[in-house]
């Protein structure tokens, strides 16, 4: 079900754009922010709200990898594994997450706090390895920094 926020704000988001279609990605981001992920029900509701075919929204949603169609942790960790990050230790980061948070890719930890996925180049290779947690980049990562960060997020 769409949240209250998006129901209230969708018009002002659409109005920012010259054409309604250009607002689609922004609207999907808003839904994801409010609901954690985007369900088929959300797509149906959005479809009637903005008068755009369900199939059109669905095809866009599935094309772009940043939209989640399954629940993620409160903190969703994206670990870059492209060449530069791989050369500077991305594998250690991934192993650390698996062992410490006891999750595999696309799984959510038992306490609901964490999930992770591997991604391709995040465009910050000079300070690799890079991970992204929700909207924030963390660069020059190592196991020690990641441990501290995860401990901090647990307490929040």
């Amino acid at each position: 079900m769409l949240g209250e926020k998006i129901k209230k704000n969708y018009k002002s988001i659409v109005e920012k754009f010259e054409k309604k279609e250009s607002a689609l990605i922004s609207l999907l981001y808003e839904i994801q922010k409010e609901n954690n992920y985007i369900s088929d029900g959300d797509i149906s509701e959005l479809s009637s709200l903005i008068d755009m075919p369900y199939s059109r929204i669905k095809s866009v949603l599935t094309f772009y990898t940043m939209f989640n169609q399954k629940k993620t942790g409160k903190y969703h960790i994206q670990v870059c594994r492209n060449l530069s990050c791989s050369m500077s230790g991305a594998r250690n980061i991934i192993n650390f997450i698996k062992e410490n948070l006891k999750i595999n890719e696309h799984e959510v930890s038992d306490d609901g706090l964490f999930s992770y996925t591997t991604v391709e180049c995040l465009g910050a290779c000079g300070s690799s390895p890079v991970v992204m947690i929700n909207d924030t980049y963390y660069e020059n990562m190592d196991e020690k920094k990641l441990r501290e960060l995860i401990d901090k997020l647990r307490k929040e």
Binding site: F17, E18, S22, I25, L28, Y64, T65, F67, V119, E120
Partner: peptide
Amino acid sequence: ITVVRGAGAY
């Protein structure tokens, strides 16, 4: 100028 964000597709 309008900003449009992508969503993860090279």
